[in-house]
């Protein structure tokens, strides 16, 4: 459903490319994680994929249509939830404000907001302000906002990087649950190898400048569990493979 071909981005003419020859495909309802060391161009990649900035070269197709601006079928969850939520709006207001511009009526927007907040377990916090909630809850609000927008694909930029380990595990399981129930496609960027293997069906390892060095299929049982899945020998093997791939000297680019 998402086809990225030969995508490159160079900010200053003649300068170092931030992204060079990025190629990958994401299938319908797939959960794909992208890992890469910091500074490898993940942010540039995400900004291009989400249509916020144009690539220098290459193309992005979502459901057969070229991405030229922010697509309607895509919702972007930012890493910095505290900065992507509007502090002057209530939780419900934060979830519903984009819906009006998608053409939903007030009643439809209210219903979608209610459903999305219930899905992330915040049904009773609609009237709170984001800054009255914990970090984990704020990120749930951001996820609810994305869900209410009813995207086909969810783009997530290290969304759980700044919460504590316990909250993070809860949010991971919440996300898996949402991914199944809402039948959406997820493209999840993280620098945490455990998280990438635990969540996804496929891990794309990025090298600098952003390009796919290796794609690793995650052949773990579909049903994931924080304790049991992580105890499997296969989980350990996959982890090591991703780590090795991240550290491997690059042979694909000059």
């Amino acid at each position: 459903m998402l086809v990225v071909s030969d995508l490159s981005k160079t900010y200053a003419p003649g300068g170092e490319p931030a992204m060079a020859g990025l190629d990958f495909t994401v299938g319908e309802r797939e959960f794909v994680c992208i890992v890469g060391s910091s500074g490898c161009g993940k942010t540039t990649m995400l900004r291009c994929l989400s249509g916020l900035i144009p690539p220098t070269e290459g193309s992005i197709e979502l459901e057969g249509r070229a991405v030229q601006g922010p697509p309607e079928d895509m919702a972007y969850v930012f890493q910095d939830y505290s900065r992507s939520l509007l502090p002057w709006q209530t939780v419900a207001g934060n979830v519903s404000f984009p819906l009006k511009y998608k053409g939903l009526s007030k009643a439809e927007a209210a219903a979608a907001t209610e459903e999305a907040l219930a899905a992330v377990g915040l049904a009773d916090r609609g009237r709170s302000y984001p800054w009255q909630l914990s970090g984990g809850m704020q990120q749930r609000v951001a996820i609810a906002r994305a869900l209410a927008y009813k995207p086909r694909i969810l783009l997530m930029d290290e969304p759980f990087a700044s919460v504590d380990a316990q909250t993070r595990a809860e949010l991971e399981d919440l996300l898996l649950d949402i991914w199944r129930r809402f039948e959406i496609t997820v493209l999840f960027v993280t620098h945490d190898i455990d998280e990438a293997v635990y969540l996804s069906q496929r891990v794309l390892v990025l090298h600098k400048p952003a390009h796919v060095f290796e794609a690793i299929d995650v052949d773990l049982p579909a049903e994931r569990d924080q304790m049991d899945t992580k105890k499997l020998p296969r989980f350990g093997e996959l982890r090591s493979r991703v780590l090795a791939s991240l550290r491997a000297p690059d042979t694909t680019s000059a």
Binding site: R47, L52, G69, P70, A75, S84, L86, F97, P98
Partner: peptide, 9 residues
Amino acid sequence: LRDTARSYG
């Protein structure tokens, strides 16, 4: 915030 608003069209 600007990016959020833009990405939501």
